[in-house]
Amino acid sequence: MVLAGVGVVLLAILVFLAFDGPQKFFTLFAAGIALGAVYALVCLGFVVIYRATGIVNFAQVGMVVFGAFVTYNAVYTWGWNFWLSMLFSAAVLAVIGIGFERFALRRMTGKPIFSIILLTIGLYLLLQSLIGAIWTNAKDTIPNPWIGKTVSLGSVNILQVDVVTMVLGAAVLASFFALFRYTKVGLGMRATAIDQEAALAQGISVPGIVALSWAIAGAVAVIAGTMLGSGATPKVGLGLGISAVALQALPAMVIGGLDSPIGAVIGGLVIGVAYEMAVGYQTQYIPSLGTSGFADVLPYLLMVLVLLIRPSGLFGTRDVQRV
């Protein structure tokens, strides 16, 4: 009920802003969706690991930015085709993901959740530092087929690279859906997400499922990182700015529900649109909140709001508290 009320209020604000100046509103809205698509892709990687292991995997942030650089290396240094490079990078990061699971995370079974999260932070910092050591003089963008090109949607222009990002985001979501719904492995993943012990008892190879989840997370990270590095909104280009963007996706994951793929996408889009609207209108309507910076914390404020009303997020599985 309360949640619906909040939704109505937010929607009303959007409608008000839309009538205030349609051109501005729809431009910002489009940018918000584009930004949201990036957040969604990052979050999908978070969600896969959360479902398999019950932890928020900060290493995902490192995999996103590392994946971008591996793609860059293939495209720019080796001169490969863009898609081939991305595929190659996805394979590399899948292997890295499996390696992380096999040689690090698996050894942490039974340790406090906090230690495990800290381990993933360590892995994130490791990947990020490696970038500084390996690619000391990279270009500012991954060369790609859509540089500088836009498509028009009515009076609003959208970057082609953003359209590709949205399509890829939708494709990943759809394949998640298909995977979980129609394949045996997917069924195992769902079972593992619900109850690891029960899944084991049913003869599901839980370690195999967890390893697969890490591989998928690595591959999804590459898509997010490559698109960011190719100049997708917010146009940070190829650099460590990518990890800042990936970190901003965390509240989207909580808003959507930690274990829900559709929640990750919706949460990402909500955060993306909220961000752009905040940048576009806050200085105009609430100048007392400062010249910049409010938009950066708004996602976290929305997150706290959702947590207060519905701790499991919009689409997350409600936790049964075990005593």
Partner: peptide
């Protein structure tokens, strides 16, 4: 118009245009 570095500038450019 002001922006924080390494963030999206759609809103600011739109404001310049408006």
């Amino acid at each position: 118009q002001r922006y924080a570095t390494l963030t999206d500038k759609t809103a600011q450019i739109q404001a310049l245009k408006d």
